[in-house]
Design a protein around this nucleic acid. Structure first.
Length: 629
DNA sequence: CGTTGTCCCGTGTCGGGTGT
DNA sequence: ACACCCGACACGGGACAACG
């Protein structure tokens, strides 16, 4: 306004801009179409998505630009129309457009015009357009690969409809400011030469752009703009930071949804679609709408759960412990609370499906249970990958070395407190290892149970230690006894009886205690594995010092914990020793229906415990009470 | 002491991948 | 391109460490 001289004129300044004699059109170019103003880039861009990658025109119809030379000869034009004329001509152009649509309804129209002199065209065009994109100035207009470019243009007729061919998603790339975590972040594979690295480098391009046919993979696809309107209920403001970021997130979500399917799956589906369509059209008298589904969403509504997906996605920007961003496992908790909250709210549904021999199934309208959201989670998971830091497995050789170190320290020490600490720690480790227990399960060892079997098992022909756990285990609804016998002569030679015997001896004879938990403090509170972890790590360190070749250098002592280390070895070692799967499962969980189940703690243990079966490796199994009674 | 992040598990289902 | 098989993964909750 200032440069043009309009501002100055209002204050009597007659020497600026137009008043100084400069051409008014140099300030407001009514005489230039979108192409002239962009140096031809608008029509180049339109043509880029009008043709498929193989160079086939959308709907088989070539796109012809309408110019001042042919705009009055439309009856002879056998092509789709690209209206790309200056705003100053719009009054005439709109008349011609309406006339042409009446006369030749079969031709699609693409309309691009700078947003000037809008009174001539905007109202009519909005009425006629099937799709309308309006973007104010100041937006990064020419970013390569932006599917939904700015500019003011209307796409008339048949673009999304059944007309002749599905419109492929042409170029839909992740936003330039997409900073969402990717598994391959930080890996430079651009100069890779060996096969493996080249293979990995292809993943650099995964998740970054959509592929032909991605919009037909079984879940709804709507463009970023529609999605934005669906979740916010308004048009985006392109200069608004939050709106921009929301659009970035929407693009990320869309790509994640698409990349839940492998490229080959998408391309086969797409190829099949096209091939079948061609075959039907050549051989049958069937109209396309008879077998092609209508695409798009007629309502302004988030029908897929874009809102929930966005909420889930932004959490992934939070900082994680293992890597820069949080893990997928952490991210997906958003889903959990949303579905929980959903059922807590108005949309709760009482409907359920009850199978005769299976769990109930519930009907829900929650988006997070939908197919689309599932795809999003899958895509996001694939993109993010996961970084896991698990407890190191405690092999029996390491455990033996720990026992060796503990034994010598125990023998040398006269400090009863230290001795007790050693006993408890080693006892904890052996019980966890022998029975494949998790760190939180070992404290369920009960004094009453242990003592009840102690003498008898010592005198038996095949000597063993009976571990007796009392409590409610994962997945169970009531308290039960769980009995696991550990052989005195186990293959690995772990001294179960020696250490458990020491611990029991101290409790019974020194402390006068024969009831309660094996691991409890003076107040009778059950102790957790964390209580013994420091001592356990000290013993590991000492064992390492004693046998330097015991562990690889890369393993850190901190990787060991009584939480999972003893249990992690149960799988590899038992597998190596050909222990039957049933036995593993039995010992791991005691839950196989036809095998041993625990029993109510109220019953006398004599009934629960029937006999020890064949020894297999370090573990023996208990016959199931139901089976024997 | 509450919150956040991580690790882990058992189970059932279906669609992707593979072989021809 | 077709036929078929099997394995990967979602799901929710439990547990605990680190942190504020």
């Amino acid at each position: 306004m200032k440069v043009s001289g309009v501002d100055g004129l209002s204050r009597g300044d007659l020497t600026e801009g137009m008043m100084a004699g400069r051409d008014p059109l140099s300030f407001i170019p009514f005489n230039q179409g979108a192409d002239e103003r962009s140096g031809g880039r608008v029509s180049t861009w339109v043509r880029s998505w009008w043709k498929s990658r193989k160079g086939i025109d959308f709907g088989g119809m070539p796109l012809k630009a309408i110019t001042k030379d042919n705009m009055f000869e439309l009856r002879d034009l056998q092509a789709a129309r690209l209206w790309i004329l200056p705003p100053a001509t719009m009054e005439v152009v709109m008349e011609l457009l309406c006339e042409d649509r009446l006369a030749h309804p079969q031709w699609p129209h693409v309309f691009a015009v700078p947003r000037l002199m809008t009174h001539f065209w905007r109202k009519d065009l909005m009425k006629n357009a099937d799709l309308l994109f309006t973007v104010p100035a100041g937006v990064p207009f020419w970013n390569a690969g932006q599917l939904f470019e700015p500019g003011s243009r209307a796409l008339l007729q048949q673009f999304l409809a059944w007309a002749s061919n599905f419109p492929p998603v042409q170029k839909c790339m992740e936003a330039s400011d997409d900073r969402f975590p990717r598994l391959d972040d930080g890996e430079d594979t651009t100069n890779a030469t060996d096969l493996e690295a080249i293979e990995a480098s292809t993943t650099m391009h995964r998740y970054r752009s959509a592929r032909d046919g991605d919009h037909l993979m079984g879940v709804p696809f709507e463009c970023d703009l529609c999605s934005f309107r669906n979740v916010s209920g308004r048009q985006p403001i392109f200069c608004d930071r939050r709106d921009q970021f929301t659009l970035t997130c929407i693009r990320r979500v869309q790509l994640d949804v698409m990349w839940a399917r492998e490229p080959h799956t998408v391309s086969s589906n797409w190829a099949r679609t096209k091939a079948d369509y061609q075959m039907v059209m050549t051989n049958l008298s069937v109209s396309p709408e008879a077998f092609l589904p209508q695409l798009g969403n007629t309502e302004l509504r988030d029908r897929v759960g874009m809102g929930a997906a966005l909420a889930t996605l932004v959490t992934s920007l939070r900082a994680g412990r293992n890597s820069t961003n949080i893990q997928v496992d952490t991210m997906r908790k958003t889903r959990t609370w949303i579905s929980n909250a959903h059922d807590a709210g108005q949309e709760y549904s009482c409907e359920s499906v009850v199978g005769l021999d299976r769990a109930k199934q519930y009907v829900t309208s929650c988006h997070t249970f939908g197919k689309w959201y599932g795809r999003f989670m899958r895509g996001a998971r694939l993109r993010m990958g996961m970084v896991r830091k698990q407890n190191e497995a405690l092999t029996s050789s390491v455990a033996l070395a720990v026992c060796e170190v503990a034994e010598s320290r125990w023998q040398l020490s006269s400090d009863e407190e230290m001795r007790e600490n050693l006993e408890d720690t080693v006892c904890f480790m052996l019980a966890a290892m022998g029975a494949g227990l998790r760190g939180e399960e070992v404290p369920l060892l009960s004094m009453e149970g242990l003592l009840a079997f102690w003498e008898e098992s010592r005198l038996a022909a095949d000597r063993f230690v009976m571990l007796t756990l009392k409590g409610r285990f994962k997945g169970e609804v009531d308290e039960r006894w769980h009995l696991v016998p550990l052989s005195d002569n186990s293959r690995s030679g772990l001294p179960f009886r020696q250490w458990i015997g020491r611990a029991l001896n101290r409790r019974v004879h020194c402390q006068g205690r024969s009831k309660g938990w094996l691991f409890q403090n003076k107040q009778g509170i059950r102790l957790k594995f964390g209580r013994y972890d420091p001592t356990f790590r000290v013993l590991i360190d000492a064992a390492r010092a004693l046998h330097p070749s015991l562990l690889p250098d890369i393993v850190e002592t901190g990787d060991y914990s009584l939480w999972r280390s003893p249990r992690r070895v149960a799988v590899p070692e038992t597998t190596n020793q050909d222990v039957s799967e049933k036995v593993i499962e039995l010992v791991n969980r005691w839950r196989k229906k036809e095998a041993a189940k625990g029993s109510e703690p109220g019953l006398p243990m004599r009934q629960i415990y029937t006999q020890c079966l064949v020894e297999e490796g370090d573990v023996q199994t208990v016959a199931c009470p139901e089976a024997t009674n």
